[in-house]
Design a protein around this nucleic acid. Sequence first.
DNA 1: TAAGATTGATTGCTCAATCTTC
DNA 2: GAAGATTGAGCAATCAATCTTA
Lengths: 154, 154
Amino acid sequence: VARPLNEVEQATWRVVLSASVLLVERLDRELQEAHGLSLPEYQVLAHLASVPGRGLRMRELADRALVSKSRLTHVVNRLEASGLAVREPCAGDRRGLNAVLTRRGQRMVQLAAATHVHGVRRHLIEALPRRDVVAVTRGLSHVVDHLLTDRTRC
Amino acid sequence: VARPLNEVEQATWRVVLSASVLLVERLDRELQEAHGLSLPEYQVLAHLASVPGRGLRMRELADRALVSKSRLTHVVNRLEASGLAVREPCAGDRRGLNAVLTRRGQRMVQLAAATHVHGVRRHLIEALPRRDVVAVTRGLSHVVDHLLTDRTRC
DNA sequence: TAAGATTGATTGCTCAATCTTC
DNA sequence: GAAGATTGAGCAATCAATCTTA
């Protein structure tokens, strides 16, 4: 049996989980209501928009948007169905596929980004005391590094 | 159009989202593999175990475990189907239902708690530099407070 | 009329199996 | 055989509508 968490450790875990659940839920809902986009869908679009040229390969996009390969397939199916993105064959490797934004997709990202940025500002940036910003960013970046090390790729 | 996020703000948001997604995913997977329980399911069981006596009303449990009322109904259905919890009528209010752990449920929480605590320790507590613990906890608690204020109850 | 809770249809996700190219 | 990607079945989550008691 593992040593149980002490008071401070429990408090840390509770607040990390709550912040995580509530923040994601809120940003997702706001995107959903304003643009019919889930947060993961927006993330995928945003990563495509952030890159110059012919989009990103599915594998690469999945890694960046932190979704499984399989889930990305389904997400891109939906994006394609609503005309926001298309798949293109990948020059030089016939196994690969690039996801690319359409014009509509580019316009959509712009609109949705406004909603998203506004939400991140209000619910995270402005709610976070100034003096804690550096420590929160640094502390969590260590957690992220730990979790990315030995992450089983799927 | 909202003012875009500056470098620091973007970094903060990115790391908060990544930590959130990766941590929840990892803890969920470990619980899943060891006990066939999702993280939300474990949270529900853990909240029931943390309270003395006749369990918790569905509404109250939903609030504590940060899931929607509807989702809690489905989760408790599954827990009931696998013999980990039961619903009991609520004394004094015939609209209410209490979710209560069975003996099997109690045993299951104990087992799963070991897995869960171990995971929280390795992936959050130990990965978080000591000097950042206070600020992370305090900073995110402000975010949680903000999000709980005016949360639309569903 | 409001609060507690459920229902069920729709939609989305996961997981193992598959297909193709390297 | 391994990597890129998809498929589809099975399962879980969401949302609006519903039911019951307060």
